[in-house]
Design a protein around this nucleic acid. Structure first.
Lengths: 248, 248
DNA sequence: TAAGGGCTTTGACCCAGATCAACACGCGCG
DNA sequence: CGCGCGTGTTGATCTGGGTCAAAGCCCTTA
């Protein structure tokens, strides 16, 4: 089942759905065909670990579809999620041979992997790839720092609202809609994964989800399907002012 | 007092104490003299704000000496420190015109500022600067993610021990010593600044410092001067295994 | 020498969120 | 159909760290 070739994956880079946002955003036809030669696709099922922390990584990769998480674990099992990797996000660090994090698929995930050596060589001779990578890394750094505020200073309710607004905003942008009107999306994370992201226990996550539902901030159909009737209300609950975080 | 020219600052780049670790690490003589033309020095006293979040920034900069902090604040005043900027660290983001953070000097700070426009142009034509910047940004991203674990999952005692071990390790590396023998250093942060970094209150910081002292993990001469008799013990208290974090 | 102002410590009490425990809801499977 | 299991909810209780309050310790200034 794993690594099964898929017809939709045998496409070339120029048809790639994430091409304009990924590390290859500014590559021309010649550069894309160089990339074709070092790339291969891999697919993962929900729950499957893509890389273990400390493992040797002989590739770097872009998420094509689905969601993966980065997490760190202490010896006693406490774990903290440190990144949510969405389509077009880049995984792996040029110049480092082992992974510093566990990378886990939370949904079905398709990754476009590049063999590391040739990819690093290509970075050297193609400045705009290094530029794009810098740009993406700076965005991730900003996201990580914003998350530090969430982890260090927000209440449980604010943390939940922050996570929901991140996911809602992403879905809204994929649907090319504005922030007016109700947003509807499926949570790609279990309560436990949400807890690991937010530095909470899964019980607290569950309680706060119920509280937000009771207070009309969100509606739930089943466990995972969420409706946000008023996005600005959700942002207020998150402790951000209503337009915060949109300066991306 | 501010921006007073200092004799030690009129030196050229090749004498710069942070040159081999900074963004210009791989610049040759010609490139350095290009940088000379777009640079100027600024100095700040402890407590002075270097840039306010949201301010226009027409420069990027390297910390030459001293320590600055990056922090974010919520409307109600809760603040979270998101970065500790040490000598050679880079401040500012190419391609963005306003600062996303408050930057504050916690000690006397000397910064080497580069006018933004020419610096960005130089990045474009000098690939290895973009490379170095990418390398440094990736290091900061790793540090931010490690800090997410501290904020999300560690106890107050572990948080304090984590912060002390970071500062101790940095000082040890500046002193070019190993991890054996007692480490001695001065805390560059007030209890309040430590609290803002750790997502705690200053009272809790104070209590845990006292507890670590009572338990012999650290010794205190005055409020700020710290002796760590056994670095591995401190690392254990931080919840890291004894060699963790040294894979930099 | 005293007075004042940062910074820090310590104590008493409280509460948000953790912990422990029971149960509910689907859903695949024998 | 009933069983088991993964996932999620809810309740009862506990506790680490927050909050509020009072002093202590320097250091500067007069």
């Amino acid at each position: 089942m794993l690594n099964e070739p898929m017809s939709s994956l045998s496409q070339n880079c120029s048809d790639c759905p994430i091409r304009h946002r990924a590390v290859c955003a500014r590559c021309d036809g010649d550069e894309l065909s160089q990339l074709e030669e070092m790339k291969y696709y891999r697919t993962f099922e929900p729950g499957r670990t893509i890389v273990w922390s400390g493992d040797r990584m002989d590739f770097v990769a872009s998420v094509v579809s689905g969601i993966a998480t980065l997490s760190q674990t202490m010896e006693d099992g406490r774990t903290q999620m440190v990144g949510l990797m969405l389509p077009s996000d880049f995984i792996g660090r040029p110049g480092r041979t082992t992974s510093a994090y566990n990378v886990v698929a939370t949904t079905d995930v398709v990754m476009c992997c590049f063999r590391k050596k040739p990819f690093e060589a290509m970075i050297e001779r193609t400045p705009h790839i290094a530029h794009r990578l810098l740009e993406m890394t700076l965005d991730e750094l900003d996201a990580a720092r914003e998350w530090m505020l969430v982890l260090g200073r927000k209440t449980a309710r604010e943390k939940i609202a922050s996570l929901l607004s991140i996911i809602a905003r992403r879905d809204a942008s994929l649907q090319l809609r504005g922030t007016q009107g109700p947003l509807v999306f499926d949570l790609p994370l279990t309560r436990e994964a949400m807890a690991d992201y937010l530095g909470l226990t899964l019980e607290t996550v569950s309680r706060q989800m119920s509280a937000l539902k009771r207070d009309g901030v969100i509606e739930l159909q089943g466990k995972r399907h969420v409706t946000v009737p008023d996005f600005n209300r959700l942002m207020e609950e998150a402790g951000d002012d209503a337009d915060g975080g949109l300066l991306v």
